[in-house]
Design a protein around this nucleic acid. Structure first.
Lengths: 121, 121
DNA sequence: AACAAGACGTAGAGTGTCTACGTCTCATTC
DNA sequence: GAATGAGACGTAGACACTCTACGTCTTGTT
């Protein structure tokens, strides 16, 4: 019975909010092309393991983003000498990233107004 | 043909992120009991119409929260002299609100780290 | 030869929000 | 006193996204 892979602090994990994954992926690719596995690792590392992108979310998201024209992919070889599909932002993808960032900021601000009503209420 | 109710700036509206509505409702009830319609209005007003809670989201959410024991309801009469179901937080609901606020803060922070990597990357 | 890890992927369940209906009641207005 | 609008409740079904749980293949290590 192989022990279920422990994945660091199982309790601290946060589920992603629906709709944020696309933005995170686009942002991660802003610094250059990466393959799917690498994108997941980058997100996990930058958040100290708090955000874990499961493959069942990641790959469908990448396909979806590519189909919409925000990403384009090319097959290559990874650092570990494995076949890997590298994704990079298209110009439209950069625009989309800006839109999603704006939306995210607005949303966080709006929710903040409900959660911490400065005055009124 | 009655014109579809315009609802102020149709384009500026933001869809809620899945999972945030419960928190918004709990927070809104922190200042006292309110009926469903009133909760929706309060959220809309505090966000300058940016967040609109549709009835098809609101009522199921209220039922869900009540079933989980975060809220309890009593029938009453509204300011407009209408029959209305008033919801208020239970003690468990207050605890839940705290948990959701913590989760929200963590999540926003984690996403912030991906979006604006201070150093590293 | 066996196994772990790197890398890709899909199927299906679960969840939550939205749109689109629908009902009833009170207050207003003609 | 009939019609209308707004206040208030609610449900059904579509849709989208994430997760869990599988599954495959390849490379490197022991």
């Amino acid at each position: 019975m192989s022990p279920r892979t422990p994945r660091t602090d199982p309790d601290r994990r946060l589920e992603l909010l629906q709709g944020t994954l696309d933005m995170l992926i686009l942002r991660t690719l802003l610094s250059g092309a990466r393959h799917g596995h690498g994108i997941g690792q980058a997100i996990r590392r930058r958040t100290d393991e708090l955000l874990q992108v499961e493959t069942g979310s990641l790959y469908p998201a990448l396909h979806r983003l590519e189909k919409r024209g925000w990403l384009k992919s090319t097959w290559g070889v990874s650092e570990a000498n494995q076949r890997a599909k590298y994704y990079e932002l298209t110009p439209a993808g950069r625009e989309q990233l800006v839109r999603e960032q704006e939306r995210w900021t607005e949303l966080v601000t709006a929710i903040g107004r409900v959660m911490n009503p400065a005055h009124g209420e």
